[in-house]
Structure formats: C-alpha cells, structure tokens
C-alpha cells in the first residue's frame, strides 16, 4: 500500500507536471531548432514570440467569450489558437521582411542576426505588454480536473491523492498531435523535404532549384505556430505573464542544445530532459521517501536538491555539462 502511495505521489508531483512542462518546452525548442536549422542563428526573440502568440490567443479567447462561443469542457483558447497563430505568423513574416532578410542577403555573421533578434525581442516585448499589459492573466475557462485528488482517494482508498488537471492532458495530447503533424510535414511533403534539404546543404538546395525565400517563409510560419501553441499551452497550464515567457528562453535554448541544435527529434528529447531534471531536482522527496522507509527513519528536513527558485540553475547546469562533454548534443546537431 505504501509503495502504491509512493508511486502515486511521484506521479502526482513529478511525472505528470514534468511531462506537461516537458511537452511545452519541447514545442518551444522545436521552434528554436527549426529557425536555427534553416536561418542558422539562435533566435533570442523566440520567448517573446511565444508571449505575443499567447497574448493574441487570449485576445481571441476574450472575443469568442464575448460572443458566447464555448467548447466546454475544453478551454475556449484552443478555438482561438488559429487566430493567434495567424497573427503571430503575420508578425514574424513582417519581421523577417523588415529585419532579417537584409542580413541574410548580405550573408552576415550569425552573431549579427542574434543581435538583430535582440532588437526584435525588445519590440515584441513592448508590443505584447502594450497590447495586454504586464499583469498575470488566467484564461483557462475549461473544466479544471480530469482526475480530482479527493475523488481519487475516495475511489482507491489510498492516502495519497492523484490530481490530473485537464490542461496537462490537453498539453500532452496537443503536443503529440503537433509533433506528429510536423514530422509528417518534414518527412512526407515536398515543401517539408525541401526545408530539410535547405538545412542540410544550402548551396546544393539552391542548385536543385529550391527557392530559399519560400523555405524561409514556411519556416517562420511553422516557428510562429509552434511558439503560439507552446505559449498558449504553458499559459493555460500556469498563467500568462509576459516576463515569464522571456525567462523560458533559457530552458528552451538548453533543450534545443541538449538535443542537438537543428535536430527536431533532439529538441523534443531535450525538452523532456530539461523538464524532468528541473522538476525532480526541485521537488521535495520527503513525502515519497516517507512511504518507502520505516516511520522513525523518515528525515525531518526537506529532501530536495535545490529550492524551486533555482530551477533555472538546472537548465544551466545541464547546458554546461552538454557543452563540456558533447557540444553537438545528444542527437548530432549542426556543427559546433
């Protein structure tokens, strides 16, 4: 019985939240890695692209709500996603036209593009805050729980409750669908294959008649879609606050690098590696251990490697370890 309780506690506090968070990071890292693979720079504006996409989705949600549209028990935000994606895609395509294309044509050093992305980050940051404010926004209007802790206890007779929030289920289901769609697109369609070809060998892609501007535009649209979906899922799961999305930049970059920059499969693996490490390292295991070892041996203090304030240190530590020992990432990414 105690063993079951320990497993339920692990599920409840580590595995389920980390899976949802991992899926959100993976989607974010996919966007970063796609941009890196095709445009060959680390996009510092990606966190704020996520924030902008989420803000647009929230606006859409509010609009739908005022019209009385609802897809209860699911959150209305899912219905507003296409609007958010379209608005974000328009923004990033506009940005590419106004900012990045110039440096691409000039074949500037990647670091100049990184610098330009910092400028874009400022602007997107300002636009997002201007449109929706700096405060915290809850926009999840769906049913809160799939499994309720109290009901779970009553049904199973276990001491430990298991809570499964609907946003966590939505996150995982959406992430699986999105990743499946993305891989189908990259692996099966003409445009998707041309993107991979461009990422592999730009000069040869040109010799094959692949239109670089088209590849770049499709990449931006995909990145915008991924960013909006990742941001909206993160916001549904937690809440929306513009600054939190800027702070997501570090775990997202860490995920992309850990998996191997430019490698989509790696981005997904990296997202889960980062999320599970972050949650496991900052979780207090006293409760779980309490079930597993005899009562009087149970430690009195918290059994926690790091306090939650240091969760960014986890991404950073993993990043440093990967850079030290395997700079190309777990799955071979682009050159170091």
């Amino acid at each position: 019985m105690d063993f079951l309780n320990a497993i339920v506690a692990m599920l409840n506090f580590v595995i389920i939240p980390a899976s949802a968070y991992g899926a959100q990071l993976a989607l974010g890292a996919l966007g970063v890695t796609l941009i890196y693979g095709i445009l060959r720079f680390s996009n510092f504006a990606h966190g704020d692209t996520m924030a902008f996409g989420t803000a647009m989705t929230i606006l859409g949600t509010w609009g739908l709500q005022s019209l009385g549209v609802s897809i209860s028990p699911l959150p209305t935000a899912l219905l507003a996603l296409p609007f958010g994606i379209a608005a974000t895609a328009a923004l990033v395509l506009g940005t590419d036209r106004a900012v990045y294309r110039f440096y691409r044509k000039k074949k500037s050093d990647p670091i100049i593009l990184v610098m330009a992305s910092v400028g874009v980050m400022f602007i997107m940051n300002g636009v997002t805050r201007f449109v929706i404010g700096v405060g915290e926004i809850q926009f999840d209007d769906g049913v809160r729980f799939v499994i309720n802790a109290r009901e779970f206890r009553a049904a199973t007779g276990l001491a430990e409750g298991l809570a499964l929030r609907s946003t966590q289920v939505i996150t995982l289901v959406t992430a699986v669908l999105v990743v499946w769609a993305l891989f189908w697109f990259l692996g099966r369609t003409r445009t998707g294959k041309s993107m991979r070809a461009f990422s592999d060998n730009e000069d040869l892609a040109l010799l094959s008649g692949i239109n670089p501007e088209r590849v770049v535009a499709v990449t931006w649209i995909l990145a915008a879609a991924l960013a909006t979906i990742a941001g909206t899922l993160f916001g549904l799961d937690k809440s929306f606050k513009a600054f939190n999305y800027f702070q997501l930049l570090l775990p997202i970059f860490a995920a992309a690098i850990v998996g191997g920059l430019g490698n989509p499969l790696g981005a997904i693996a990296g997202g889960f590696v980062i999320a599970f490490s972050e949650v496991a390292v900052t979780y207090d295991f006293r409760k779980v251990l309490g079930y597993l070892i005899p009562g009087d041996w149970t430690p009195s203090g918290p059994i926690q490697l790091l306090s939650t304030e240091y969760k960014f240190a986890v991404s950073f530590a993993i990043l440093i370890i990967v850079l030290l020992f395997r700079p190309t990432g777990i799955f071979k990414g682009k050159s170091v």
């Binding site: 294959k193 041309s194 991979r196 592999d200 892609a205």
Partner: peptide, 12 residues
C-alpha cells in the same frame, strides 16, 4: 544532402 535518404536526395 547528408541527413536525407538516397531516395529523398534524388527527389530533391
């Protein structure tokens, strides 16, 4: 295109 299959190379 090193990461793509032979067939995909031909398709490209």
């Amino acid at each position: 295109f090193p990461s793509m299959s032979v067939e995909e190379n031909l398709e490209m």
